[in-house]
Design a binder for these strands. Structure first.
Length: 313
RNA sequence: CGCGGGGUAGAGCAGUUUGGUAGCUCGUCGGGCUCAUAACCCGGAGGUCGAGGGUUCAAGUCCCUCCCCCGCAA
């Protein structure tokens, strides 16, 4: 089959790789335009583009595929389009091009967590499981009929980063299975139950802020959900203290949320929350590199008893 | 050339302003104390101070060049 792949970040890579290694022919790849990124504003290409170039697959990077990608897509004459975290919304005109339609790989158990950050939201909301769903793309956002679904439990050790990695691999397998069943006409197709749907917005930087009045559990989830981006943080006197890794801590103290309960290399850095306490395991001070909290405390000191928000770190 | 912080022992930091024998905390090794310990005491090992060049009697410290890491903004 002639397949056109559309995707952008790391999550898309295993799916594209799976297609390349399959019997199908990836005749073109659409991905977001190269953009200035990071310090110094160097222009970087997407992970999907890097992979496509390695295999000499033609790459297309329209600013808006709806406007200036249609002709290119038609010229490729695809039997099937596959999208996986592409980052652009497809128009009906685009969807009409491939004979067999467009399959999307989405990192949630639809109809829950529609939108662009399903993995983060599943962790943030402390759900027991999430997964990958393949679906026939229609003109809505993640609203098409569901094809195959694969559940994955969410563990306390999971972060958005680790789950993205495993779901990307699950997605790649599920994609191949989906295509196989589609081509043999044995693929189930189920309408999404609109009553059960949730749509989650894109992540914003300020969603990383930890409100220490919340429960330890919800803060713990936020830390994991915002890793690696935008990264959870606690506003302090001289900037944001990023929290890369934390763990729940039992306590019978009833100190004000934000109170530093302990801050030494032996006990670690423990902060009182609305309910319970949270030990900050891996942190990053402003202008500094990330490190284990116990290492941090070897070189700098924080007074126990003060509010972390008022501390200079 | 977007703005800024930084590179000193295995780890985290001080020392750089005002050049003059390389420090602190932790870890590590050895010894001691203890019923015992992540506690305490004593002792030791471990450093091309990111790289190169320059100034100087003398450079971690001053000057120039380069490399690497990080925060902010996008």
């Amino acid at each position: 089959m002639r397949i056109v792949f559309m995707g952008t970040p790391e999550f898309s890579v295993p799916s594209l790789r799976a297609l390349i290694e399959s019997d199908h022919q990836v005749v073109g790849v659409f991905t977001q335009p190269d953009r200035p990124k990071g310090r110094g504003g160097k222009v970087q290409m997407s992970p999907v583009k890097e992979l496509a170039l390695q295999f000499d697959i033609p790459v297309f990077q329209p600013l808006k595929i709806r406007k200036d990608g249609v002709e290119d897509l038609k010229a490729l004459a695809p039997d099937l389009c596959v999208t996986a975290a592409f980052g652009q919304i497809l128009s009906q005109e685009i969807l009409d091009v491939p004979k067999m339609g467009t399959v999307n790989v989405h990192a949630s158990l639809l109809p829950r967590h529609r939108g662009s950050a399903p993995i983060n939201w599943a962790i943030l909301q402390d759900e027991e499981k999430t997964g990958v769903t393949t679906m026939m793309t229609d003109a809505g956002i993640d609203t098409g009929d569901m094809l195959l679904k694969h559940e994955v439990p969410i563990q306390d050790s999971d972060t958005a980063k680790s789950l993205t990695l495993s779901l990307a691999n699950v997605g790649a397998e599920l994609l191949l299975e989906t295509i196989t069943k589609l081509s043999t006409g044995t693929c189930p197709s189920i309408k999404q139950n609109e009553a059960e749907m949730t749509y989650d917005p894109m992540l914003r930087k300020d969603m990383g802020e930890l409100d220490l009045a919340q429960t330890s559990r919800s803060l713990f989830c936020r830390v994991r959900a915002m890793n690696p981006w935008p990264c959870a943080y606690i506003p302090c006197a001289n900037g944001n203290l990023k929290v890369w890794q934390a763990q729940l801590k039992e306590t019978n103290q009833t100190a004000r949320p934000g109170t530093v309960l302990a801050a030494d290399p032996k006990q670690g850095l423990i902060i009182a929350t609305g309910v319970g306490a949270l030990e900050l395991l891996e942190i990053q001070a402003p202008n500094a590199k990330r490190m284990m909290a116990k290492s941090f405390l070897l070189g700098r000191s924080i007074e126990p008893g003060i509010l972390i928000n008022e501390a200079t770190i």
